[in-house]
């Protein structure tokens, strides 16, 4: 190692020590803290209770994570609290199957049309027999059936490897949530049978449903959601580890489906008001992507009637309107956001 490399290595050490403090002092941190204080008292909505494991969660938990495509992390609240990813897993598994099977084949099995119906609706596109899109349960179950692997364990391992590439750490399946999901998942089983009837899925319904229940029972924290969203924003590469989580050619597929279908039957209004590709889960998580700029993760377990986190929706709305993140906010050059990352030095 020569002197200049040595100096670079030392500078990198100092930077990594200092970066978190820099983030804490940034105007964005102040903005997130204010959002946190503003919405902390909001107790509207209801925790998902279709299985006892979800009902047990402390409803007051609340965290916001913003991760930029160059790896800056600004967060507030119960950022390390684990919860189940639930439907927020769907876009990521969708991406994996695009890599596995290619765009055309995936599209032949699962559509990309918003339903306007509840996430668990037992409904398929009448003319094609396909589920409407990969973000509703029917589509996500069919999508799980497309994951490649010699046996169920191999398939699960590939899903977990994908999550590791997105998060930069090993996640695990919570067995009690998974067991509950499996034992109460009659509606999802009915959906699978309907799809089998239309010839849209293979015979092996149990394996397909099992993988689906497991992907929903993966434990994440809010920071993970922020990093996963930032990985999508960063064209499929994790901004902290530089690991590739998704082939860049499929980013547009995943993001456009999130944009139109990600927020259950609130997707239309979400696209209009927030204008960002996003996906919510009944565990209380939301991932939202500002392409080429940052990822947002929000966690708050109380849900509105459509199954979206109440505080999560509010936080995304405020972030989007304050910083001009809406995809079609064409007059915004993100300068407001970029300048919020560092304090201005007065002369």
């Amino acid at each position: 190692m020569n002197d200049s490399q040595n100096q670079q290595a030392l500078d990198a050490q100092l930077d990594s020590l200092i970066q978190p403090f820099k983030a804490v002092a940034s105007p964005l941190q102040e903005f997130l803290s204010d959002l946190y204080i503003k919405y902390k008292p909001l107790t509207e909505g209801k925790v998902a209770d279709y299985i006892p494991e979800l009902a047990k969660v402390d409803p007051d938990l609340f965290a916001i994570s913003v991760v930029t495509v160059d790896g800056k992390v600004i967060e507030v609240g119960d950022i390390d609290q684990l919860f189940t990813i639930q439907s927020a897993s769907k876009p990521f598994v969708h991406g994996l199957t695009l890599e596995d099977c290619g765009r055309d084949f995936v599209l032949s099995r699962v559509g990309v049309e918003p339903t306007g119906e509840a996430f668990n609706a037992i409904v398929l596109d009448e003319s094609s027999g396909r589920p409407y899109n990969p973000m509703v349960n029917a589509g996500a179950i069919a999508t799980a059936g497309l994951v490649k692997g010699d046996d169920p364990t191999a398939k699960l391992n590939r899903v977990m490897e994908m999550f590791r590439n997105y998060c930069g750490r090993d996640l695990y399946v919570d067995m009690s949530v998974y067991t509950s999901e499996r034992s109460t998942g009659h509606r999802n089983r009915a959906i699978a049978h309907l799809m089998l009837n239309f010839g849209m899925v293979d015979q092996n319904l149990d394996d397909m449903l099992d993988l689906y229940f497991k992907q929903c029972s993966v434990m994440v924290n809010c920071h993970d959601l922020g990093v996963m969203a930032a990985t999508l924003a960063n064209n499929g590469r994790n901004p902290m580890t530089n690991a590739r989580a998704l082939d860049s050619q499929y980013i547009k597929d995943v993001l456009s489906v999130m944009y139109t279908c990600g927020m259950y039957d609130y997707s239309g209004e979400w696209s209009y008001r927030v204008g960002l590709p996003a996906k919510s889960g009944v565990g209380g998580g939301i991932v939202a992507v500002v392409p080429k700029l940052l990822g947002i993760g929000v966690f708050s377990p109380r849900l509105d009637s459509r199954g979206n986190s109440v505080r999560g929706v509010k936080v995304c709305e405020e972030l989007s309107s304050h910083f001009g993140f809406h995809s079609f906010d064409l007059h915004d050059d993100h300068s407001k956001f970029l300048s919020s990352l560092t304090r201005t030095r007065s002369t």
Partner: peptide, 11 residues
């Protein structure tokens, strides 16, 4: 001073 410089301390 080196640290303060990196932390963008205004003054």
């Amino acid at each position: 001073l080196q640290v303060a410089n990196r932390l963008d301390t205004p003054k």
